[in-house]
């Protein structure tokens, strides 16, 4: 590894031409991104990046985990994260770093100095390493977003809704796995307390398959609700699921089941002393 003192010539060149260099760098990246980032935004980012980069000139970038890389790492991370959120591709993100290389080559190509050439090659290695770092941060940020989204999706697909005073309903849709069922059931029990509801309808019309574990969670929820002083009704069991339940030998015991959500609601209301009557419409 070379120390910064060896690369004095390149450092001086870069410092002296900083403004024009950054200006051309910004120009190239702006055209690359075709207007999806303004020159002002890019300039602010690149100035900061350039300032953090200068002290590292002469470093070959083989160990970007070293303490002297702390600042540039955090800038690279910030930049990559912002790019992920803004919908840029990983190549577009990395190209922002690589573009600087082209400008530096252009700046030094007419100098006939073998020592300077060597320094530029080392610098090129440094930018390669930083470019790869953007990939790493980009991937990490995207993983986080995917995780967040799947959590949000879980929230979205499992709403606990109040359908009448004292009656909650959870329409379950899609494939139920054990973890999801558990989350929904906890949410339902919490909602019973918050809303003071004595009835909960778990509607599984939209559920395609039930395995033993999921059925167990449903059963446990019904029992837990009973311990809290509320009653659960399971509605909308499809014929195939009824067959699975019987085939798996799952004991549904004394759990109230109704064919449809409407039947379940009517049952809950009657238990609460509410009668629904048809009025003569004139």
């Amino acid at each position: 590894m070379t120390d910064a003192g060896d690369a004095q010539r390149l450092t001086e060149l870069l410092r002296a031409n900083a403004d024009s260099l950054i200006d051309r760098w910004v120009g190239e990246v702006a055209s690359l991104l075709r207007g999806r980032a303004t020159r002002t935004e890019l300039e602010a980012d690149f100035r900061e990046f350039f300032a953090a980069l200068l002290p590292l000139v002469g470093n070959d970038g083989k160990d970007t985990g070293a303490p002297e890389f702390a600042e540039i790492r955090s800038l690279t991370e910030e930049y990559s994260r912002a790019r992920v959120r803004a919908g840029f591709t990983p190549s577009e993100t990395a190209s922002s770093v690589f573009s600087l290389k082209r400008e530096v080559f252009a700046l030094t190509e007419n100098e006939n100095d073998p020592e300077l050439f060597r320094q530029v090659m080392v610098f090129s290695g440094l930018l390669d390493a930083l470019g790869l770092l953007t990939f790493e941060f980009y991937a990490r940020a995207r993983d986080e977003i995917i995780r967040e989204q799947s959590e949000q999706l879980l929230e979205l697909t499992t709403p606990v809704v109040k359908i009448w005073e004292g009656v909650l309903a959870v329409p379950l849709v899609g494939t139920l796995d054990s973890a999801r069922t558990q989350v929904v059931m906890e949410k339902l029990l919490e909602a019973l307390v918050e809303t003071g509801s004595e009835h909960a309808i778990i509607d599984i019309t939209g559920v395609f398959a039930v395995d033993t574990q999921v059925a167990q969670h449903l059963l446990k929820t019904v029992v837990a609700a009973r311990l809290m002083g509320a009653e659960c009704i399971v509605s909308g069991i499809r014929p195939q699921i009824a067959q699975t339940i019987v085939a798996l030998g799952i004991e549904f015991g004394d759990i109230m089941t109704k064919a449809s959500l409407a039947d379940a609601l009517r049952y809950a209301l009657r238990r609460d002393g509410v009668d629904l009557v048809h009025r003569e419409v004139r």
Binding site: E186, V193, G196, E198, V223, A224, A225, L227, M228, G229
Partner: peptide
Amino acid sequence: VGMRPAVAITLVELGLTLGGVRTALD
């Protein structure tokens, strides 16, 4: 009365059903 959801879930997992004791939300 007033059994918390987390307590109810835990009791069910523990295997305790309180045999015939009446319960209410509040």
